[in-house]
Design a protein around this nucleic acid. Structure first.
Lengths: 192, 192
DNA sequence: AATATACCAGAACGTTCTTTCTCTTTTTGC
DNA sequence: GCAAAAAGAGAAAGAACGTTCTGGTATATT
């Protein structure tokens, strides 16, 4: 019998990794609709045929980009949860971590917010991924606040989501320094 | 002498108004790069020639759209400032006004944040307009807080900008009701 | 050594996009 | 009423887009 899955390579591949890494950087830094496939393929040194073997078109690349971003944040949380001894400390680590993030990694805003701005259809795969990411983030925050013994974990989590969104947007549009101090001050006031 | 400004019609024009109104709605609701001129012209019932007579290409339309949005908010503030008798009341009016805005008018997020997501070049005309709008907004907020007798007007204004950004984003991606209550609660806590 | 698979190379397709053009008709100002 | 400006209709240019296809080359695994 012949192999029926000839068109779906398993996982690892140098070309695939290069492609996704370059595409993620370009999509984030310059916007999704702004970037053409030509640009991605040229900078990654990958041909069209190879790309269509690994991803379901441009939208497949976009979904993989957001999926990686989602996975990275989840991994960061899993790591932070195991390292912080005290639950109360975790909140401080969290606020500081967000402040660092907007000044080092996410200097062009939130990948999910930016993507949502370009995908108006709420039922599209991209928007569904954005929605599930945000749901996970709020739920995770709520668990952290429960562990920290907050009086109203749900409300606190909602406020923190609000503030993180704002910090990412502000860091992009108003400058990092200005935003970082405003975010930390406001967050600590709200969670006091 | 012949009229030298034959190629720059002054202001009012039924076709121009229709065009800008339709374009603004489409740009906001569906994104800027997502919308083609064909769609704008068809829905506005205006021909290409007419559009290029009134605007400097698609980017001219985009700038006019954001300019109107900016003017509308400035007008709203000018009106609110004259109507509210007490400066302290003005803060309540402000918070309530933002909450109403995200549930009635701006249900697809902030026009300026969304536009910035699609325009990565900070020196582009669109981004400059976004920057000046945000500068004006923060300065205006600070003046309001000074009038209200806040202890740290600059810090309070920065926090309010943060929270308004978050409210607009959250209203779009997480639902209005959830976001509205979280915003009002957080804002009043911060400004207390 | 042979066979399958991944990758590179490049052409080509059909579509859509922005912009510009010509020609005719309508509206407007004086 | 007349002349000028504005708006409608439509074609067409020219580039960029995403997608598909064919062929050649290298790299593994059996």
């Amino acid at each position: 019998m012949t192999d029926l899955m000839h068109s779906s390579p398993k996982k690892s591949s140098a070309a695939r990794d290069r492609l996704l890494r370059v595409a993620s950087g370009l999509f984030y830094r310059e916007g999704i609709h702004t970037i053409g496939l030509d640009r991605v393929l040229a900078e990654a040194g990958v041909t069209r045929a190879t790309m269509y073997r690994h991803f379901a078109g441009k939208e497949g690349l976009v979904l993989a980009y957001l999926g990686e971003e989602d996975a990275a944040l989840r991994a960061l949380f899993a790591e932070g949860a195991s390292s912080a001894a005290e639950a109360a400390d975790l909140l401080d680590v969290l606020i500081g971590g967000i402040a660092d993030d907007i000044s080092q990694h996410h200097t062009r805003g939130c990948p999910f917010i930016n993507a949502a701005a370009e995908y108006p259809n709420a039922t599209s795969p991209v928007r569904k991924l954005v929605a599930s990411h945000r749901d996970w983030f709020r739920d995770t925050l709520e668990q952290v606040l429960v562990a920290a013994g907050a009086e109203d974990p749900a409300a606190g989590a909602a406020s923190l989501v609000l503030l993180r969104d704002a910090a990412l947007v502000g860091g992009y549009l108003d400058g990092v320094e200005q935003t970082k101090t405003a975010f930390e001050r406001t967050a600590r006031k709200v969670l006091a």
